[in-house]
Every structure is written in C-alpha cells, then in structure tokens.
Nucleic acid binder design. Structure first.
Lengths: 192, 192
DNA sequence: AAGAAAATAGACAGATCTGTATATTTTGTG
DNA sequence: CACAAAATATACAGATCTGTCTATTTTCTT
C-alpha cells in the first residue's frame, strides 16, 4: 500500500476519528497517540497511509472542504430556483449547522488561527476552502442580480465568518438569523 | 514576591516577550522554555509571577484587551465629534492595524480557536474582549442614531471579525476598506 | 553594612510528542 | 493451500512539554 492511496477502510476510519478529535479539541492539542488509541489502529498503519501528522491534517481539511460545500450547495438547491431565496438559503444552512450537537466553529478559521504563518501548508489548505466558498457565493450573488457580485460575496463572507465565530463562542444559533437579515438588506442595496 | 503582584519589570518583560511569541506562532505552539530563553529569564521567576502557563496567557490577553480598546478609542476620539465619522473611524483603525508589520490576525479569535471549549478559562477571557468591543460599538451606533444600536453593533462585529480573518490569511489591508463601505451602508439603513 | 526579597542556574520529574525500526500476525487473493 | 500485502504489537529514539526543587547569587531597602 502506498502513501498516495486515496481510500481504504483503515485510512477512512483513521481520518474519521482524527477529524472528530481535531475538531473537538484542536489540531495541536490532539496527539497522534490519542488518535490511534481512539481509533484502535497501529501507529505504523497511520504512517503507511500518511507521511506525517501534517499530511493527515491536510487530507482531513480537503475532505471536509468537499463535504462542507456539498452539504451547503444541497441546501441551496433545495431552496428552488428563486435567486434571492437560493442566496439566503446559505444562512438557513448556517443556522442548522450552528445548532448541531458538536458544533465548535469553523475548522478552517481555527486552522488558520493555529498555523498563523500564511505560507504554512495547513494555513494555505484551510484558506483555499474560504476561497472556494467565496467563489460559490459570488455565483449566487451574480445570479441574484448583484451589480458587483464579487464585492457582495466578499462582504457576505466577512459576515458569515464573523457569525460562525460568534455562534461558536456563545453557543447560540442566533448569529445565523442576524446575518441572514443583513444579507437580505445588502442584496437589495446591491441590486438597486 | 507574590503571584498576585500586578506589575514589576521582570513580569512586564516576560509578558512582552511571551506576547510577541504567542502572537507570532500560537499559544500552544510556543513553550515556556522558548519564552524564557528569548526573554533571558529564569524559569522560577516565571512561576513566581504566574501560577501556570495558562495564567500567563490569561494575563496577556487581559492586557492586550485593554491596549487594543484604548488604541481603538483613541482613533475614534481623533475623528472628532461627528457620530458617523466616529463610527467609521473604527474601520480606519482596522486598516492601520492590518497593515502593521507583525499583523497575524486577532489573538482573541485565535485563542477561541485554540481553546475551542467555551468553558475553558482562556476561551472565556478571549471572548470577554469581543463582548467589550461590541459594547463600545453599540455606544457608537447609538450615538450615530441607529434605531437598533445593539443589532447594528452585532452586525458590525461580524463584519469586523470576518475582515480580520481575511486580512490575516491574505496579508492585505483591503478588507478594512470593504468593511468600511458596508458599515456606512448599514448605518444609513439603520438610521433611515 | 546587614538583612530581606528577588532572581538566578541547573538538575530533575514525569509525561508527552512525532516518527522509526523490527518482527510477527492477520487478511485478502490467486 | 500458498503467497503477498496489510496491519499488528512493541520497543525505541530523541526531543519537548509543564512544573518543581534546591542552593546560590544578585538586588533592593533600611
């Protein structure tokens, strides 16, 4: 088995366990041994699948990025065809997320916080997620008729990230509602 | 010397060195020994002034909170008496901060990220700063004639935190400008 | 100058960290 | 069954972590 294999039961199980612990306690706070103990997997199995803890973290972040955006866009699709409703569906999705049992903020913001040097591979991987989300928002803003879709998407990104951090620290879902109201106002301004 | 003493040259020097390293590399990433080596201070001196690394971190966060808000309010004061200009001065202050040499985001957001459990003393201390800033923003929003100053201040808080994270990851000051424009729009809406 | 307070060096404990090496056992496949 | 791949247990290296202890020296105050 090579370290470049993209999937296997053991690898998936390892990533699932690591994800849970990393998200709950933090990337630096969780050691390899803790993950291995919790997963019931031998250390060499981890190092046969991943070159290092750093590569494990990066693999997890990339997986979460896909899952996150897939889930978000599914909610957008379920909102129908009205462009405004599709954009605002993003905030409904946030509300559900904030209310979920194990919600502990945004792992990407947290990764950027834990690896503050912008050149660090983990920092860069985490930020690529934010760029991807902003691109999706830009599409939604453009479809909704925003004159400057890029600018509105950036503003909504700020709003969303701020709401996530507040929802995390306060353990409430209300920030999603507040942000939704503001988003609706900003969209109206941007299309006027 | 007791561990409750609030100030002394050694204590101040220790806190200044620790602050620099913590902010640059992260709270968990920097060990006590690194701080002591950089500061040129004996280990027992640290433990005579602080009960633990955690208490050192908390003391630093509380000090930074005061310095941060003092600096911010000084810029507000320098903006004169016009309530709108005073509120928007917050974003000018942000722009200066984002452009500063060693800018690495918001240590309070990063502390909340590194200690994700909301009951953790470090998490709580960091969040108290955000609450204090929001209170100051609420005053500025009220003075500027916002109908719901609390709601506007919360929205601006989201905007600010999001802009900080983006400025950090992208190493640019532009988010301050974007946020300023949006803040002006939202204030107009809130006073109409 | 004398006594008290503060800071020092340095060793140490005991745990934890990432990553490696090796030899054995399990698993899957032909 | 036989062979190869995968996973295992275990030990280990070497560094690092927070925090304690002790004995000595420096600094401050009176």
């Amino acid at each position: 088995m090579s370290a470049t294999a993209q999937s296997s039961p053991k690898r998936d199980h390892l990533m699932a366990t690591a994800w849970r612990l990393f998200y709950r306690d933090g990337l630096r706070a969780v050691g390899i041994d803790t993950i291995l103990g919790e997963a019931g997997v031998a250390k060499m199995t981890l190092y046969n699948h991943f070159a290092s803890k750093e590569e494990l973290i990066i693999a997890i972040l990339e997986k979460r990025d896909l899952e996150f955006r897939t889930s978000l866009m599914a909610q957008v699709e379920s909102a129908g065809t009205d462009p405004e409703q599709r954009l605002l569906a993003v905030f409904d999705w946030l509300e559900g997320w904030f209310g979920s049992e194990s919600f502990k903020g945004c792992v990407f913001i947290r990764a950027v916080s834990e690896y503050p040097e912008p050149t660090h591979p983990i920092h860069q991987t985490a930020w690529r997620h934010k760029i991807a989300v902003k691109a999706a928002l830009t599409d939604l803003c453009g479809a909704a008729g925003a004159k400057d879709a890029v600018a509105l998407a950036e503003t909504l990104s700020f709003l969303i990230d701020g709401a996530i951090v507040t929802a995390h620290a306060t353990q409430t879902t209300a920030p999603a509602r507040s942000a939704r109201v503001t988003a609706a106002q900003l969209l109206k301004l941007a299309t006027a």
